[in-house]
């Protein structure tokens, strides 16, 4: 049984007739070919699939597409403008907050919303706020530095 869904993704209308068991992440990756959002686990822990739904960071592998009916969805592909990186993206590059790049989109998307809720985060706030994002490459050292720097840059 197909269900018609429609939503706004990165500012553009998107819709399809889909099997209700389609996870949002698969809708984004397979239907819209927005492959920047990744799948790293099947139990909702790794956070590689983090996107914004109605301004909130959520795990796109832990929400059905049909649950996002009518929502505003933003993915990693939607945060830079005309090739100009978002301050958080720039901070990750400047502080070497990524290595293999697989967890990076989810990390950046969570970090942006973390900072929107905590504009002046402490190191502890950042570390606790990244609980739902696994990185196996960086030991988080440079990610935490990047998020702190990104927070400062987002204020400007």
């Amino acid at each position: 049984m197909g269900i018609a869904v429609s939503m706004t993704v990165n500012g553009k209308a998107a819709g399809a007739d889909i099997d209700p068991r389609t996870l949002l992440v698969h809708f984004l990756r397979d239907q819209l070919r927005l492959t920047g959002t990744h799948v790293g686990c099947d139990t909702g822990q790794c956070g590689a699939c983090t996107v914004h739904v109605n301004g909130r960071a959520v795990k796109a592998c832990n929400i059905l597409t049909v649950q996002a009916q009518g929502a505003e969805v933003v993915t990693i592909e939607g945060i830079s403008r005309d090739g100009e990186l978002h301050p958080m993206q720039s901070a990750f590059r400047d502080h070497h907050g990524l290595q293999c790049g697989f967890c990076t989109p989810g990390m950046v998307m969570n970090a942006i919303e973390l900072v929107q809720n905590h504009p002046d985060p402490s190191e502890d706030t950042v570390r606790a706020g990244l609980e739902g994002n696994f990185c196996r490459c960086t030991g988080y050292h440079n990610i935490v530095k990047a998020v702190l720097a990104g927070a400062a840059a987002m204020k400007r």
Binding site: G44, G47, A57, K59, L114, E131
Partner: peptide, 9 residues
């Protein structure tokens, strides 16, 4: 509870 993304849903 859970992590930030889980708390948002």
């Amino acid at each position: 509870i859970g992590d930030r993304q889980v708390r948002n849903l």
